[in-house]
Amino acid sequence: MSVNTNARVDFEVIASLVKPGSRVLDVGCGDGELLELLQSAKNVDGRGVELSQKGVNESVARGLSVIQGDADSDLKYYPDSGFDYVILSQTLQATRNPKNVLTELLRIGERAIVSFPNFGHWRVRTSLALNGRMPVTKDLPYSWYDTPNIHFCTISDFVDMTREVGAEVESAVALNALGQRLGFNMPWGFWNLFGQQAVFLLKR
């Protein structure tokens, strides 16, 4: 389910938001890299869901509890409040119904951690403005017709959606193209222009 080929700089940020020993569900866990990091660094009780069979098999071979499943259709099988954190890293933009997925995350977990590429980043904006074509960048290398990222949003769009589903933003981090954190006190508009990706910690 994870479709960003970028080195996963968001993993460290996500790990820093998770309390040790907690119960974590990673939706779109890929080959299990983040779950493994969380188990070793934070001693979490971790579970995963992954769309690609290859990712699932690799995760299970690593000794992780991962099942094959789809964020859009399979979250309904999880009980309410079954987890302390539900993580959706670099996957939201690839879901068919992001708002529904976010609602489900907040039903299953006390908190949700969502990371996503920011379509409001200046490179994306200038690419579209100057070339008049759908942006294809190093971090988002797909053409419009073959991209799995069917629901791009900007940081500002995402903040709007958190309000619509009644989620509280407990903390948020924006990372620039080098993976460095942007200044914490900057306004959303600044992050929306210079944040290459964002990580949100949400509470229902």
Binding site: D45, Q53, N57, S59, V60, A61, R62, S65, V66, I67
Partner: peptide
């Protein structure tokens, strides 16, 4: 706690008795 793997194989139900490296690596990891 559950892991669930589906192994790509064209050998039908009997595949579980056969040499299926992906099944072995999943069971080994588990």
């Amino acid at each position: 706690s559950v892991s669930f793997v589906e192994i790509e194989s064209d050998r039908g139900h009997d595949a579980f008795l056969l040499d299926e490296p992906e099944m072995f690596s999943a069971i080994n990891g588990f």
